[in-house]
Design a protein around this nucleic acid. Structure first.
Length: 516
RNA sequence: GCGGGAGUAGCUCAGUUGGUAGAGCAUUAGCCUUCCAAGCUAAGGGUCGCGGAUUCGAAUUCCGUCUCCCGCUCCA
């Protein structure tokens, strides 16, 4: 079956079985926003716990944090988001291509420079050695005219950008007869502002209100608390701060189900290290994070690194872990060596020292940072798309049979076990209820007595329950039950009193990480 | 945002030239069977995405709009 078809079925499955619903569905939905249903929220919580425990529980030099979504607006100036997330865009109606209006104008400005340089080159060739370049540049009428035009345009451009005058930007493009590099036409749409940050106001009266942004990433909450955590936690380098939280981006195009949403959740760990050691730590975390993903058992060939050739201005190394989604290899997690850029920026903008006193070196410095940043929702999509199987169970005698099964890693499964009386008579339901009452303190359990046993197994397969406990007539006699395993469909008879230990072991973090 | 496709029950979809809205699966109640779905009986569930126009009458025709999918574009 084509991958796209599988993806469609997966989306339907998520809806049908209470994993993911479109937001505000009864009001026609809200673009690129989704809600997690009764099983979705369990899976999502389990993913978050799996990550959190892998970071905070298993590393004595990593601690947690939960910073607020609202932050001082200057933080986003310091981080560069105010500038970088603010693009004036324009479309060419003929080629259907979209451009940044400011880039188009800057490229046009560069042409003036080229023209002047060509002019100078020509003169150089003509006059030979006695050519006085500075004099020529400052007196040649053609150059002066070009330069004047260029300066005028530049001034006009800067004014338009400063005043955020979108109509003026378009007018500049029209006046200068700037054409689309693809179609060569000047059939432009209006310039529109795409601000990737959501803004709101804090303060309830209009005159006291301050414009603030919903954070577009959680990382800055860690950086601005760096010293708080380091000092109160008596942390010594190298150490990390982990955080799980929502972030918001007003994406121009949000697509592919929950892969790119406007409201999403990140799991980030910023690891602070001595300057000069950052690339070694970068390699360390690259490997460690890849192993963490592969421990889920979805197949090593479904993962790969994508090293960035073009680095963001703050980074000196960056790599993504990509997973093979039904729509291709896509980023799940980013590992970035962010240098001391963020802390230095906050030091400059806040005027507060963001330095660590190193007792070994007996000196203060701004630490370097390795970031591991993973999208919870992408991780959710990874887990559920890797777990979704349509199995043909047609028997040897040719009787057609099939099932849809979510082979979720037990540690992540929303429901850990279902307790099923083989029949709903002769006290088997009573016995079953007793087992549920005993195990529900430790595991998310379900009880089901409706329909045939085979049908109930199928229902649990569809939501990914790894273990079904079946109570039969032998249970009444010797207090044993059968455990039916979701993936193999094999059964095993065990004593009721041992159930808790057996299942606790199978759904544990320890068991999952054994696969490392 | 542009181009293309789509929107009818929880899911997948049918619905002819405009004439009272359907199926399968799922769900609920009951019966039968009792270790791997689709047996029997009955029931519930739909403003046909939304708004407007044409018409005696619109799921169906037209216009607008919203949402989703694919491609382009963008992506710290």
């Amino acid at each position: 079956m084509a991958q796209e078809d599988i993806f469609k079925k997966l989306v339907s499955h998520c809806k049908e079985y209470g994993y993911v619903f479109p937001s505000s569905e009864i009001y026609d939905g809200l673009g690129a926003v989704y809600d997690y249903g009764q099983y979705g929220v369990e899976l999502k919580n389990n993913i978050k716990k799996y990550w959190w425990d892998s970071m905070v529980l298993l590393h004595d030099n990593i601690v947690g944090l939960d910073s607020a979504i609202f932050m001082h607006p200057t933080i986003w100036k310091a981080s560069g988001h105010v500038d970088a997330f603010n693009d004036p865009l324009i479309d060419n109606k003929d080629s259907k291509k979209r451009y940044r209006a400011d880039v188009l104008i800057e490229e046009h400005l560069a042409k003036f420079e080229e023209k002047i340089e060509k002019e100078v080159e020509k003169a150089k060739n003509r006059f030979g050695e006695k050519f006085d370049e500075p004099l020529y540049r400052s007196t040649n009428p053609r150059i002066l005219e070009t330069k004047q035009k260029s300066d005028q345009l530049h001034e006009r451009f800067v004014n338009a950008i400063t005043n955020n005058d979108l109509a003026e930007l378009k007018q500049i493009i029209i006046d200068n007869e700037i054409v689309c590099p693809v179609s060569g036409t000047r059939n432009w749409t209006d310039v529109r502002q795409f601000n990737l940050m959501f803004a709101t106001e804090i303060g309830s009266t209009s005159d006291s209100a301050m414009k603030i942004f919903l954070r577009p990433e959680t990382a800055q909450g860690i950086f601005v608390n760096f010293l708080n955590v380091q000092k109160t936690g008596r942390m010594r380098l190298p150490f990390g701060i982990a955080q799980i939280g929502k972030a918001f981006r007003n994406e121009i195009v949000a697509r592919q189900f929950i892969f790119r949403m406007r409201e999403f959740e990140q799991m980030e760990m910023q690891f602070f290290v001595q300057p000069g050691t950052e690339l070694a730590w970068f390699e360390h975390w690259k490997e460690a994070r890849m192993k963490w993903h592969q421990a889920l058992g979805f197949g090593e060939k479904n993962y790969r690194f994508h090293d960035h050739d073009k680095l963001a201005h703050y980074a000196n190394a960056a790599s993504d872990i990509e997973f093979k989604f039904p729509f291709g290899f896509k980023e799940v997690e980013g590992i970035h060596s962010r240098t001391d850029f963020d802390l230095k920026q906050h030091q400059e903008f806040s005027g507060k020292k963001m330095q660590y006193f190193d007792p070994e070196k007996n000196e203060s410095y701004v630490p370097y940072v390795i970031e591991t940043s993973i999208g919870v929702d992408r991780m959710f999509l990874q887990v559920i798309s890797a777990s979704y199987y349509e199995e043909d169970l047609t028997k040897e005698d040719g009787v057609a049979d099939s099932r849809v099964v979510l082979r979720l890693p037990p540690v992540l499964a929303p429901v850990k076990l279902a307790v099923l009386p083989l029949v709903k008579k002769d006290d088997l339901p009573v016995l079953s209820r007793k087992i549920v009452d005993e195990l529900k303190f430790d595991f998310n359990c379900q009880y089901d007595e409706k329909d045939s046993i085979g049908k109930r197994y199928r229902r649990q397969d569809a939501i990914g329950t790894p273990f079904c406990i079946t109570i039969d007539y032998q249970t009444v006699e010797d207090k044993t039950v059968t455990i039916r395993y979701r993936d193999s469909m094999q059964q095993e008879r065990v004593a009721i009193e041992k159930l808790r230990d057996i299942i606790a072991d199978k759904v544990s973090l320890r068991e999952q990480l054994k696969k490392l």
